[in-house]
Design a protein around this nucleic acid. Sequence first.
DNA 1: TTACTTGCAAATGGTTTGCAAAGGG
DNA 2: CCCTTTGCAAACCATTTGCAAGTAA
Lengths: 139, 139
Amino acid sequence: MDNKTLKSADLKQTKKRILILSILESAPTALTAEEIAELTVKDMKMSISTIYRALNALADKNVVNKSVHQDGKTYYEINNHTHTHSLLCTLCNEKIPIEACPLESLECLLTKETGYLITGHNLEFYGICPKCAQKRAKN
Amino acid sequence: MDNKTLKSADLKQTKKRILILSILESAPTALTAEEIAELTVKDMKMSISTIYRALNALADKNVVNKSVHQDGKTYYEINNHTHTHSLLCTLCNEKIPIEACPLESLECLLTKETGYLITGHNLEFYGICPKCAQKRAKN
DNA sequence: TTACTTGCAAATGGTTTGCAAAGGG
DNA sequence: CCCTTTGCAAACCATTTGCAAGTAA
């Protein structure tokens, strides 16, 4: 529960942090601060800097993972060990999650080969979703 | 040579672009616009926006690769046209190539499952290189 | 009570852009 | 000569920060 999560991270339990955390917990993919703001707005008014500060506090405590994607934005996701990757439509930006992650085994191999302490990876597929492909065929 | 590179990319051969390209060609790692600016300054005065515009023009023509690292900055490097992925040290930005790409088969699977026309993917591993790990242990 | 959290607005830092002047083919 | 490139300053966008007010423990 969020309850324990915040307490065990030495962070005060505020309504805003609980909401942010619950959004992250039910998110199918990593989210930007902006996306989280959109998801909170119907429940609670909160400033974007509050969201950034909450996310950074949670990241410092390793409750969430923080990672910069190729669009230059920072994405946050719950740091459980079931991470997901995504498939993005380059036309409409629809984003769908990918279940499989074939990379853990590759990480082990890389550690042995390079001596790197591997802390994470980023994987995104790009393509055109069926809807956009259809739209484009018409023009 | 830079000479042919710019011409075949349909870009005018200017002294500034030639200098930028030659810096990229002799760079051992990917560089930021800011780093390139520092390297050009002893040879030629040039505005930072010129550097960004040159790099973006070259990236559009696939002469250079553009990639956003975990520090939020954009790094540029000569595109050697081999499909590789990389392992980046989050401390010193050292980047080493990964030979294997285990993703083509996954792409086929995803196409079947999602109907997406997959046009590409991006895969990066992050970690701490042995040198930085050692340095950090000392402090 | 007391330290932590929040809102607001302003600051920041990397990157982009509009426009007029300079330069390449 | 025309079109591209460049410099400059201003704009932009995501993120951070200072400070005063609010709130959890």
